[in-house]
Write a protein that binds this DNA or RNA. Structure first.
Lengths: 151, 151
DNA sequence: TTATTTATTTGCATTTTGCAATTATAAAAC
DNA sequence: GTTTTATAATTGCAAAATGCAAATAAATAA
């Protein structure tokens, strides 16, 4: 494999995903930004998601993140509960409406992805899915890049 | 394949790439933002890259893009040449320093990617590369998302 | 008890963004 | 050939997003 090829393919993929994400998402009367959809996703998937924890996972500056959460609270999609075990900490969770919006975004993105996958045959689809898992795995193992504290 | 799985894997991959990109890049004494690296890449790879054309490819608002170019010109990485065939148009190109910076970024990203790929065996590496090409292909074909005018 | 560390929020100044309007040129209509 | 319309690029402005430094509050270490 040639290196230039490698970077080019990743660049193109990143570009495509950028567009996919831009076209997403409206739900429950709100336009949800890419960042917001990631926050909702992460709150939904983490156990006892504190402000700090989610900010770390997303790699967002904590002060910026604090304000992002404030606007999601104002939109009534997220709520903040004091952690009984440590009163400095707030646990984030989705409101009923937030859960609805998160589910709706999930469906929209899945619809996009399914449409994309429909241009491949079944064998290719499975290869691609397996590959993305391989890649995610490799990136998790990587020391020089790609994971939260980052390097 | 389960849909939830699909979205989750893509979400994770997007996250990883976000980190990879954040840690990139410094070159020629400049900190180059993700957006700037994409602009440099695109100018380098397009034939007769006009302001409008590159903005479209990147999906950036033209007014924002115009200003992004201005700062790259100020950094002496990009230059603007009037198109002799249409005097409304400016053709973008990299300066010598811009070419150096673009090459350097290319090497940095390739180094990251190679490190990531080193956590896979050769067969997996080839599968992943082939899959990314398949995926890019499918996204190009997609009507609902992922490509410039977008949908 | 005091000092230090950690979680979160606010103040403020900088940067980024995008819509509306402007300028300049090209192409189309008449 | 002049007027209208369309296109490329830039600028004005006001809103939004960003991040550092500082503040507050609570936990842990000395």
């Amino acid at each position: 494999m040639k290196n230039e090829d490698l970077r080019a393919q990743f660049q193109i993929m990143t570009r495509h995903f950028g567009f996919l994400n831009k076209s997403c998402c409206s739900a429950g009367g709100f336009d949800i930004s890419l960042i917001q959809s990631h926050i909702l996703y992460e709150i939904d998937h983490q156990h006892k998601a504190s402000v700090q924890k989610v900010a770390d996972v997303l790699g967002t500056d904590i002060t910026t993140f604090s304000r992002q959460i404030q606007s999601l609270i104002k939109m009534n999609l997220v709520k903040k509960t004091p952690d009984p075990d440590d009163r400095r900490v707030y646990i984030l969770s989705l409101t009923t409406e937030g859960t609805y919006v998160a589910t709706s975004i999930d469906q929209q993105i899945n619809a996009y992805l399914n449409e994309v996958f429909s241009h491949m045959n079944e064998f290719e689809q499975e290869t691609v899915i397996r590959s993305i898992k391989l890649l995610n795995n490799a990136m998790t193992k990587s020391s020089v890049c790609c994971t939260p504290p980052l390097g």
